[in-house]
Simulated scan of single mutants.
Amino acid sequence: MGGTEHLTVRREGATLVLTLNRPEARNALSLPMLVGLHDGWLDADADDGVRSIVLTGAGGAFCAGMDLKALAGGGMAGEEYRDRLKADPDLHWKAMLRHHRPRKPVIAAVEGPCVAGGTEILQGTDIRVAGESATFGLFEVRRGLFPIGGSTVRLPRQIPRTHALEMLLTGRPYSAPEAAAIGLIGRVVPDGTALAAALETAERINACGPLAVEAVKASVYETAEMTETDGLAAELDRGWPVFGTADAKEGARAFAEKRPPVYKRA
Results as ranks from 00 to 15, higher is better:
Val188Trp: 05
Gly40Thr: 14
Arg98Gln: 14
Pro113Thr: 12
Ser175Thr: 15
Leu122Trp: 13
Arg51Ser: 03
Ala194Ser: 09
Leu85Glu: 08
Tyr263Trp: 13
Leu71His: 08
Asp126Cys: 07
Glu120Arg: 14
Thr162Gly: 00
Leu18Gly: 13
Arg253Ile: 04
Pro147Asp: 12
Ala215Lys: 09
Arg84Lys: 07
Tyr221Gly: 00
Val220Ile: 07
Tyr221Cys: 03
Ala224Asp: 09
Trp41Asp: 06
Gly239Arg: 08
His92Ala: 15
Glu214Ala: 04
Val110Gly: 04
Pro156Glu: 11
Trp93Thr: 10
His99Glu: 15
Trp41Val: 03
Phe146Leu: 13
Arg98Ser: 12
Ala252Arg: 11
Ala196Cys: 05
Ile185Trp: 05
Asp237Ala: 02
Leu34Asp: 08
Asn206Ser: 07
Leu42Glu: 15
Ala70Lys: 06
Gly137His: 09
Val262Asp: 12
Glu12Leu: 01
Pro147Cys: 07
Asp45Ser: 04
Ala224Asn: 04
Thr170Glu: 15
Leu232Glu: 12
Ala218His: 05
Leu55Met: 07
Phe136Ser: 00
Leu155Ile: 02
Tyr174Gly: 00
Leu91Gln: 07
Met33Ser: 12
Lys258Ile: 04
Val216Met: 11
Val213Gly: 02
Tyr263Phe: 15
Glu250Cys: 05
Ala14Thr: 05
Arg157Ile: 03
Lys104Met: 00
Phe62Lys: 12
Gly183Thr: 08
Ile148Cys: 09
Ile53Gln: 06
Ile107Asn: 00
Ile107Pro: 03
Thr119Met: 11
Tyr174Lys: 12
Leu16Lys: 08
Met76Ala: 11
Gly251Glu: 13
Asp237Gly: 02
Lys86Pro: 00
Val54Pro: 02
Ile53Tyr: 04
Arg128Asn: 06
Arg238Ser: 00
Cys63Trp: 13
Asp83Tyr: 03
Thr135Pro: 09
Ile148Val: 13
Arg204Phe: 01
Leu68Gly: 01
Arg22Ser: 00
His99Arg: 14
Ala176Met: 08
